[in-house]
């Protein structure tokens, strides 16, 4: 029973507390469901999935303007998963929002599945571009936003990047150009969990002072707790205000968030919990919403 989605797939309304509660319940479901996917498939990236879950839940269950029945509608908000390895989080969010049947999550990584290890738009409508190699989604997101700018369209573009991913030069080429073009309808969220594949970002190729770097490239910079749904909602609401600069939300996150033994452990970048670990993870996550 633990993997039943809280009812109502639609986006939330009401006070920010109501909205945050709606998102929180779904984020908890995502965490439990994506761990099951990883256990069933025998591989996955739980660390980065869990650090991005609250950001994706806030986007898919509240912020994004999209019609699951018409996922390619020209006026849809665009979401680009630049950190493409975290498909556990992405697919549960998309299924939870109704973009494909929840039952299909069981096919994750199976032969000929639409749910490939990295997202593929030719398999799955709603994926905007195929990612997996780091440093690709953001430039494509910039191109989408430039297209909207040319057409004076009102859709918004959101890009989620890893923090280690910001070591790729293409990210800064895109940041420079987005700043130059004044892409006010573009919002980048940095999943600042401070870990990359093998170690801490600052011990590998340090990113700080990260906010100053974005500012120097012509961006508005906001910092939030990336696991606080009300803070995330406020940051996304504020980003919707008319402006002539792109905005980056640096979301302070914890890799492996919600599962004690995975939290802040580089070793859980990829990996599969054993049966005891899986049971413990589920117990911790169930206690969180009990």
């Amino acid at each position: 029973m633990i993997c039943i989605m809280p009812d109502s797939n639609g986006t939330s309304t009401g006070t920010i507390e109501d909205r945050a509660k709606h998102v929180r319940e779904r984020a908890n479901w995502m965490r439990r469901r994506l761990l099951k996917m990883i256990v069933d498939a025998g591989q996955g990236h739980p660390g980065g999935d869990l650090s991005a879950t609250d950001i994706l839940a806030t986007l898919y269950f509240d912020v994004l303007r999209l019609d699951p029945a018409n996922p390619l509608a020209p006026d849809r908000d665009r979401f680009v998963m630049s950190k493409g390895h975290c498909t556990g989080a992405l697919y549960t969010a998309m299924a939870g929002r109704g973009l494909f049947p929840e039952a299909e999550l069981a096919s994750y990584l199976k032969p000929k599945s639409r749910l490939n290890g990295h997202p593929n738009r030719t398999y799955l409508p709603g994926v905007e571009t195929n990612t997996g190699p780091l440093g690709h989604g953001f430039p494509v997101g910039v191109g989408i936003a430039v297209s909207g700018q040319i057409d004076d369209a009102d859709f918004r573009t959101f890009v989620l990047t890893g923090d280690g991913e910001l070591q790729e030069g293409s990210m800064w080429e895109a940041a420079m150009f987005a700043g130059h073009r004044g892409l006010g309808k573009l919002t980048v969220i940095v999943d600042r969990n401070r870990l990359q594949q093998g170690a801490n970002t600052e011990d590998t190729n340090g990113l700080e002072p990260l906010g100053d770097k974005w500012r120097a490239f012509g961006w508005e910079v906001v910092g939030v707790n990336g696991h606080d749904h009300a803070e995330l909602l406020s940051a996304f609401d504020a980003a919707a205000q008319p402006r002539d600069k792109p905005r980056v939300i640096i979301a302070d996150t914890c890799k492996g968030k919600g599962v004690s033994f995975m939290e802040n452990q580089a070793g859980w970048h990829h990996g599969v919990p054993n049966p005891e670990q899986y049971a413990q993870a589920l117990a911790e996550l169930e206690a969180e919403i009990a």
Partner: peptide, 9 residues
């Protein structure tokens, strides 16, 4: 070798 991770990998 990266099988399920797909064509990018």
């Amino acid at each position: 070798a990266y099988g399920e991770l797909g064509a990018t990998h």
